[in-house]
Design a protein around this nucleic acid. Structure first.
Length: 812
RNA sequence: GCCCAGGUGGCGGAACGGUUUACGCAGAGGACUUAAAAUCCUUGACUCUUAAGAGUUUGUGGGUUCGAAUCCCACCCUGGGCACCA
C-alpha cells in the first residue's frame, strides 16, 4: 500500500501556513550570506497553474529550501502580474469586471501554489493592479517624463483590430497580434513612447556581464541590432537638397547605380519630376495601405517607381536615378539607401526587376576594382579610406525602436498626465499619486483609438494644474509590461510608502542571484526590465546596473505524445489530477527527475508512478515497515535462516561498511548537483542510496542513514520529509530549519577501483583491486589474466600506458 | 537565407579524453496471491553463436590520440529564434 500523501500533505501545509507562513519569512539583515531566488511571477489566468509553471517554481523552491538549510538568508517571493489584455478580454467575454476576475484568479493561484508546498515569503506578495503598487509604476513614468525619456509622438503604429489597441513591436509576431492572432494593421496615432533607444548601447554592451543562456543574449543582441556604418550625402541634380543614406559597405560605393527612398521619405514630394508625380503619388498611396505582413509576403517580388530625378554619386560623380520602393523602411537608418546590386541580394533583385545597371566593384578575392583611385585596395581597408574620401560621417544605427507605451484599454495603469490646450502636457505631482483607475461599468474598448476612460467625463475633465483652465486627463493606459518591469524591486520593500525601495535594502539584495522563467520573455519583459533598471541606476534609485545576474529558462513540458500541450490536442496534463493520485511531492519530484531543467521533454504517466514508487520505498525504509514482512512464504523464511552462513555474514558486514561511504558520497553528489541545478542527477543519486540501503536488513540500518536521507530529500519532497523527520525520526524542528548535512571528503573516495586492462584500447579484463598500485604491479596483474595473455601471446608490446587507479593499456 | 541549441538503447536521460548506456520508465522471466493490483527478486543495446566467445554501436564521413560520445574539420537531420534592418 502507498503512503498516505492525502493525509500527510494537507497536514504539513496547514502547519506551514501558521502565522502567515512565518517559517519562510526572510530575515532581511545581518546574515553574511544571502541569496535572492526569483520566479517570473505568473499572470493569474482563469486556467490556473499548469505543469510548466510548476517546473520552474519547483526548481526555485528546491534551491530556496537548500540555501536556507545551508544557513543563507533567502529571499523567495511571489506576486501577480495582473494588468493587461487577457484578464480584460476574459472579463468582457464573461460580462464581469476585470477587478473581480483578477481577485478570484489570484485566490485560486495562491491556493494552488500553497498546495505545491512552495516556500514563499507571502508577507511580500505584490500585485501590479493594487493602487499601492501602481502608484510607483506611475511614479516611474513621471521620472521618465521629467528626464525626457517619455514623449508623445504621432507615429504609424501597430493596431490590433480585435483587441482594439496599439501594440508594441515586441508584441507583434509574424504580423499578427501576440495575444489573439489577428492580423495587425498600421495606423497613424499620437502615442506615448519611451526612449529605450537612448539605452541601446548599454543594453547591448552589458549583456556581456550576464550569466544568461546564450540564445537569450543572442535574441536580445539581434533585437537591438547594432550596426556601424557611414552616413553619406548624395546631391540631388537640379535641387538644393541632399539625400542622406546609411551604409555599412562604403567600400561598394563605386558600384552604387541608383538610390531608393522609403515611400514615407519626406523629400519625395519635393524632388519628384512633374512627369512622374502622378505615378509616384499612386505608388505611395498603395504602399501606405499595405500592412507590414503584406510587405513581407512580397519579398520575392520587388515593387517601385522612378521619381524622374537623379543624384550624384559622390565617389565617381556619376548620375544615378532616384527610385521609391517599399523594400526600404522609413523606420531604419535614414529611410534611404544607395543601391549596390552587384553586392547586395535585395538590390540585385530590384535592379533586375527594373533593368538598372549592375556594376561589380569587388573581385572574388576581396580586392576593389572599377573604383577609381581605390582599385587594388582590399575591401576591408577601403571601407575607412573611402569614407574619408567622400566625407561620409561615421554613425551607429540600431534596429531597436522606441517603446510604444500607451494602450487604448481600460485595464492598465492610468498615465499620470493632464492635457491642457494652453499648457500642453502637464504631469501630475508625485503627491497626487496614485491616480486610481476609476471603477466603471462599461470598459469595452471603443475602437476609436481612445480608451473607454474617455467616456468617464467626471474623471476626464479636470482643471489644468498650471493655468487652472479646463483640461483633460490622458485616457490611455500603460501596457502590461509596465508593472512587470520593476516588481522584483518592490519585493525587497513591499510596504514602503515613501520610496519605491529603500536603497539599503536594494544594496543588500540586488541583483537577483537566480531568475527562473520561460524563454518566451527573452526580448519583451527582460529587455524592458533591463531598460528601466538602468534608468533607475541613473537617477539613484538602485545601485546595480543590471537586475538579473543569472537567468535560467526551464524547458517546455510536452504532452505524452511529444507534442506541445494544448486543449485541442487533448494532451494537457492537469496538476490537480496528479496531486490527487500521487501527491504534491511526487509531482514536484517527477518534474525535476524528467531531465535537465532547460530541456524540453515529454510527460510520462509511468514516470510519475516510478517516482511515487521511490517515495514509497523511502517511506517504508524510515518507518521500518518492510512491505514484504509477513508475506514471505514459510519456505522462503526457512531458506533465509539456513542461508546465514559465514559468507553471508561477511558480506553483510562489508555492505554496512560501504553504506557509510555511500552516505558521504551521496551528500557530496546531491550538494554539488544542487549548486549546479542538476536536479535530475541529484535524485538519481538519492535513488542509488536507497537501493543500497535496501540491500541490508532494515533493522541493521543505522539511524544516521535515515536522517541524512530525509534531510537530502527534504527540498525535493518537503511534505514526506517533514512527516518522517517529525513523526518517525522524532525531531521537534521543521526539517527545513535543520542544517544541511555535511560530508568528509576522504570518505567519498573508494578504497577499491576497477583496473581496466586494455589491448590497443580495447577492454580485455576488469580487475577489482585496492587503489594505489603502481605500473609494474598493474602490468603483472593484468598479464596474469588468461584473456590478456591470449591477446599478448606472440605479439610484441610496443608501449604500455598506465593511468593510476584507472587503467593499463598495452599497445602491440 | 542568417544566428543559437541539440542528435547516446524501445523511451526520458547519465557520462563530457579512459568500462558507453548511471538512475528511472517500458519489456521478459520468476516469487507472493484463488485472482488482480501492489510489492520484491532476476534479466536487460545490436549481430553471429547451443555456449564459451567474437564482432559492431553515441546522426554520417574524415582527422588528432595508446585510447574519442567527449577535441578538430566537413556534411546530414531535428528544435528554437530572427528575417527586405541597407
Amino acid at each position: 500500500m502507498s503512503y498516505q500523501h492525502n493525509k500527510i500533505e494537507p497536514k504539513w501545509q496547514k502547519i506551514w501556513a501558521k502565522n502567515n507562513y512565518k517559517i519562510w519569512h526572510t530575515a532581511d539583515k545581518s546574515k553574511k550570506q544571502h541569496i535572492y531566488i526569483l520566479d517570473m511571477f505568473p499572470y493569474p489566468s482563469g486556467e490556473g497553474l499548469h505543469v510548466g509553471h510548476i517546473e520552474g517554481y519547483t526548481a526555485s523552491d528546491i534551491l530556496s529550501r537548500y540555501y536556507r538549510m545551508k544557513g543563507y538568508d533567502v529571499l523567495h517571493p511571489m506576486g501577480w502580474d495582473a494588468f493587461g489584455l487577457p484578464a480584460e478580454n476574459y472579463a468582457i467575454k464573461t460580462k464581469k469586471n476585470p477587478k473581480e476576475v483578477v481577485a478570484k484568479n489570484i485566490k485560486h493561484f495562491r491556493k494552488q501554489l500553497q498546495v505545491m508546498g512552495f516556500s514563499y515569503d507571502w508577507q511580500r506578495e505584490v500585485n501590479t493592479t493594487d493602487h499601492n503598487y501602481y502608484k510607483w509604476t506611475q511614479w516611474i513614468f513621471l521620472q521618465l517624463y521629467k528626464h525626457g525619456l517619455a514623449y508623445e509622438d504621432e507615429i504609424s503604429v501597430n493596431w490590433c483590430p480585435s483587441c482594439k489597441t496599439v501594440l508594441a513591436d515586441e508584441e507583434v509576431v509574424g504580423g499578427k497580434c501576440d495575444r489573439c492572432g489577428t492580423l495587425v494593421i498600421k495606423r497613424k496615432l499620437k502615442q506615448w513612447v519611451l526612449k529605450i533607444t537612448a539605452y541601446a548601447d548599454r543594453l547591448l554592451k552589458d549583456l556581456n556581464l550576464l550569466d544568461w543562456p546564450e540564445r537569450v543574449k543572442t535574441m536580445q543582441r539581434n533585437w537591438i541590432g547594432r550596426s556601424e556604418g557611414v552616413d553619406i550625402e548624395f546631391k540631388v541634380v537640379g535641387h538644393e537638397e541632399y539625400i542622406k543614406v546609411f551604409t555599412t559597405r562604403t567600400d561598394t560605393i563605386f558600384g552604387a547605380t541608383y538610390l531608393v527612398l522609403a515611400p514615407e521619405h519626406p523629400l519625395i514630394k519635393k524632388i519628384t519630376s512633374e512627369s512622374s508625380s502622378s505615378e509616384v503619388k499612386k505608388y505611395i498611396e498603395q504602399a501606405s495601405q499595405k500592412s507590414d505582413f503584406e510587405r513581407q509576403a512580397e519579398i520575392k517580388e520587388k515593387t517601385g517607381v522612378f521619381t524622374g530625378t537623379y543624384a550624384i554619386n559622390p565617389a565617381n560623380r556619376e548620375r544615378v536615378p532616384i527610385w521609391v520602393s517599399d523594400y526600404i523602411l522609413m523606420s531604419y537608418g535614414t529611410g534611404a539607401i544607395m543601391g549596390v546590386p552587384a553586392h547586395d541580394e535585395r538590390d540585385l533583385q530590384f535592379a533586375e526587376q527594373f533593368r538598372l545597371p549592375v556594376k561589380e566593384v569587388i573581385s572574388s578575392d576581396g580586392i576593389l576594382m572599377n573604383s577609381g583611385p581605390f582599385n587594388g585596395v582590399p575591401a576591408i581597408i577601403a571601407q575607412e579610406k573611402i569614407a574619408l574620401y567622400i566625407g561620409g560621417k561615421k554613425n551607429v544605427r540600431y534596429k531597436l525602436r522606441d517603446w510604444i507605451f500607451s494602450r487604448q484599454r481600460y485595464w492598465g495603469e492610468p498615465i499620470p498626465i493632464i492635457k491642457c490646450s494652453k499648457c500642453g502636457n502637464v504631469p501630475l505631482k508625485e503627491s497626487e499619486l496614485p491616480l486610481k483607475l476609476p471603477e466603471i461599468k462599461k470598459y469595452q474598448p471603443s475602437g476609436k483609438s481612445e480608451s473607454p476612460l474617455a467616456d468617464i467625463l467626471s474623471w476626464v475633465n479636470v482643471k489644468c494644474p498650471k493655468c487652472k483652465g479646463p483640461a483633460k486627463r490622458e485616457t490611455n493606459t500603460m501596457p502590461q509590461w509596465a508593472g512587470s518591469s520593476w516588481y522584483f524591486l518592490r519585493y525587497l520593500d513591499p510596504k514602503n510608502k515613501k520610496k519605491l525601495v529603500d536603497i539599503k535594502k536594494e544594496k543588500y539584495w540586488m541583483p537577483v542571484d537566480i531568475y527562473i522563467g520561460g524563454v518566451e520573455h527573452a526580448v519583451l519583459h527582460l529587455l524592458y526590465a533591463r531598460f528601466w533598471h538602468k534608468f533607475f541606476y541613473d537617477i539613484g534609485v538602485v545601485s546595480t546596473i543590471e537586475p538579473f545576474s543569472c537567468l535560467i529558462n526551464q524547458g517546455i513540458i510536452l504532452g505524452e505524445d511529444g507534442e506541445k500541450m494544448s486543449k485541442s490536442r487533448g494532451n494537457v496534463i492537469s496538476p490537480d489530477d496528479i496531486i490527487k493520485k500521487y501527491g504534491t511531492d511526487s509531482l514536484r519530484m517527477y518534474e525535476m527527475f524528467m531531465g535537465p531543467l532547460s530541456f524540453s521533454k515529454p510527460w510520462s504517466s509511468q514516470g510519475v508512478i516510478g517516482i511515487h514508487r521511490f517515495l514509497n520505498r523511502v517511506w517504508y525504509l524510515v518507518t521500518e515497515k518492510d512491505p514484504l514482512l509477513g508475506k514471505k512464504s514459510k519456505k522462503k523464511k526457512k531458506e533465509e535462516k539456513l542461508i546465514v552462513t559465514a559468507e553471508a555474514k561477511r558480506k553483510l558486514k562489508e555492505n554496512l561498511k560501504n553504506l557509510e561511504r555511500t552516505r558521504h558520497k551521496t551528500i557530496k553528489k546531491v550538494t554539488e548537483d544542487l549548486e549546479k541545478l542538476h536536479f535530475n542527477t541529484a535524485i538519481s543519486s538519492l535513488m542509488e542510496y536507497v537501493n543500497q540501503l535496501y540491500e541490508v536488513p532494515l533493522e541493521k540500518v543505522d539511524k544516521k542513514h535515515l536522517e541524512s536521507l530525509v534531510l537530502l530529500l527534504s527540498p525535493f519532497a518537503p511534505h514526506l520529509s517533514e512527516e518522517l523527520w517529525n513523526s518517525y525520526l522524532k525531531h521537534r524542528k521543521s526539517v527545513t530549519q535543520e542544517k544541511w548535512p555535511t560530508f568528509k571528503p576522504h570518505l567519498t573516495e573508494e578504497i577499491d577501483f576497477v583496473l581496466i586492462a586494455q589491448i590497443n584500447g580495447k577492454t580485455r579484463a576488469k580487475i577489482k583491486i585496492k587503489k594505489g598500485i603502481n605500473k609494474v604491479e598493474a602490468e603483472k596483474l593484468a598479464k596474469s589474466f588468461s584473456l590478456v595473455k591470449k591477446y599478448l601471446s606472440k605479439k610484441k608490446i610496443k608501449k604500455v600506458i598506465f593511468v593510476k587507479d584507472k587503467l593499463i593499456n598495452f599497445v602491440i
